[in-house]
Simulated assay, not measured.
Amino acid sequence: MTTASNENQSPKNLIQIITFNVRATRTAGDDGIIPWINIGRGNEEILNLIDAEEIIIPEHEITVSIDYPLANPASFNLFSSIGFSRKLLLIEIREQFLTFSETESLDISAIDLVALDVYKTNAGKIEITLDIDL
């Protein structure tokens, strides 16, 4: 099977929505929790990420697809022997946005990661799309 056919399998079934909650350090909401991660402040916010170490995707290989706000949608594969925690996913996604900020002139301080939509293809592959706010 070719890479292109792996990436374009359908249908995909939504199996999980992963959220990010951060203890507020600058401005507090009603309960002091912010329901997103700012990509530009990711290093700071990761310290206050709730359930950061929880393994939320037990699979060892996933594909992350990013379309918005990129001019050219991109995807990348991640591998982990123990599965993926919120912290690990945030670190990897932030690194990709740092790379994109150089090539696409993105202002990553304006990008908030609200959630991850986790899909399973008919072939059993895990694909993640990002729920982004600008």
Score class of each variant (00 low, 15 high):
Met1Lys: 13
Thr2Arg: 08
Ala4Glu: 13
Asn6Pro: 00
Ser10Trp: 06
Ser10Cys: 09
Lys12Glu: 10
Leu14Asp: 03
Leu14Asn: 05
Ile15Trp: 04
Ile18Gln: 05
Thr19His: 11
Thr19Glu: 14
Phe20Gln: 00
Val22Ala: 01
Arg23Glu: 15
Arg23Phe: 09
Arg23Tyr: 08
Thr25Ser: 11
Thr27Tyr: 15
Thr27Ala: 11
Ala28Phe: 15
Gly29Lys: 08
Asp30Glu: 11
Asp31Gln: 13
Gly32Tyr: 05
Ile33Ser: 06
Ile34Pro: 01
Trp36Met: 09
Ile37Trp: 01
Asn38Tyr: 07
Ile39Thr: 07
Ile39Asn: 01
Gly40Leu: 09
Gly40Phe: 09
Glu45Arg: 04
Glu45Thr: 06
Ile46Phe: 06
Ile46Glu: 10
Leu47Cys: 09
Asn48Trp: 05
Asn48Met: 11
Asn48Ala: 10
Leu49Ile: 08
Ala52Val: 02
Glu53Ala: 13
Glu54Tyr: 05
Ile57Asn: 02
Ile57Arg: 04
Ile62Gly: 01
Thr63Val: 15
Thr63Arg: 14
Ser65Val: 03
Asp67Ala: 15
Pro69Leu: 04
Leu70Thr: 00
Ala71Phe: 11
Ala71Val: 13
Ser75His: 13
Phe76Asp: 02
Phe76Cys: 04
Phe79Pro: 00
Ser80Tyr: 05
Ser81Gly: 08
Arg86Met: 06
Lys87Ala: 13
Leu88Gly: 00
Leu88Trp: 03
Leu90Asp: 00
Ile91Lys: 10
Ile91Gly: 00
Ile91Arg: 07
Phe100Tyr: 15
Ser101Tyr: 03
Thr103Asp: 12
Thr103Asn: 12
Ser105Cys: 14
Leu106Val: 09
Ile108Trp: 09
Ile108Met: 08
Ile111Thr: 06
Ile111Arg: 03
Asp112Pro: 02
Leu113Val: 06
Val114Arg: 14
Ala115Lys: 14
Ala115Asn: 12
Leu116Asn: 00
Val118His: 06
Thr121Glu: 03
Asn122Cys: 08
Ala123Gln: 10
Gly124Tyr: 08
Lys125Ala: 12
Ile126Asn: 03
Ile126Cys: 06
Glu127Gln: 15
Ile128Thr: 02
Ile128Gln: 02
Thr129Gln: 11
Thr129Asp: 10
Leu130His: 03
Ile132Arg: 01
Asp133Met: 10
Leu134Ser: 06
